[in-house]
Amino acid sequence: MAELTKEAHELTVSLDWRERHVSTIRMLRLYARTFARNGSAMLGLGLVLLFLTTAAIGPYFVPFPDDATGSVHIERKLQPPDAVHWFGTDEVGNDVFTRVIVGARVTLQIACIITGVAMLIGIPLGMIAGYMGGWVQEVIMRITDVFLSVPGLMLAIAIVGALGPGIVNAMVALSLVWWPGYVRLVQAKTLSLKNEIYVDAARSMGAGSLRIVFVHLLPNCTSPIIVKASMDMGMAILGAASLGFLGLGAQPPFPEWGAMISVARTYLPDWWWYSFFPGTAIVITVLGFNLLGDGLRDILDPKHRE
């Protein structure tokens, strides 16, 4: 057997982080270049970054922090946008700008939790269904089909109706209707991946089912999951806003965009700014996530690439 040369020893010990990840760095660079050429994807990335920054630091810089949780300043109610109140004020005199900015963080939390819970439920179920096959797959997929056959928002409304309105219940309801999409996606991907030879190879080395699923298969499913998650962030925001609008989600004066519009719609069209700015915030954020998702698909899923 070949003697291990001293240089080889020293080579690995001396390799720094950059040298170890040279391949990853090269790949990320390629991704970045492809992404940068795609105008709409860059716009999406910009919008999402704007949203994330706002959610992260916005609440510390808002002009009327108290207004976010609902104070009452009857003396300046329903003022149009001006230098002090950039987005105007609402029916109890709260600064709409402040509430939209603080709403960004609330919205981000809601979207992350819904998408996160949906992924936590959907991905393992999808992998198990795809890898195990047989009756396990039948059971999981038929349940998934049942959920998918009812319009998501209707089901969510029914669930919130049963649990009672409120931001937490709205998130629970939306998470419960969101996971089947991930089961479908991951199951299909697993089904095609499990016939790959490297899965056979892993089995021939003695890897157990759990290890194959989570160590060998899952990392190869990440691309479509990331793409879907990015799109779903937008859809989850829309869903939460819809529930808020219907009065089933966040309750006023909680600064959630949907709930704000729900109240504001009665003040249309004369006091347009009250609903216009939260509405614009929703449109821009959802658009941003969708464009980003499209862009990510272009670089992560070469089949859709031209």
């Binding site: 790959e196 030879i197 490297y198 056979d200 190879a201 892993a202 060998h216 990392p219 190869n220």
Partner: peptide, 10 residues
Amino acid sequence: FQDPHSALNP
């Protein structure tokens, strides 16, 4: 295995 391209996890 036969096809070394697919026998290694990408």
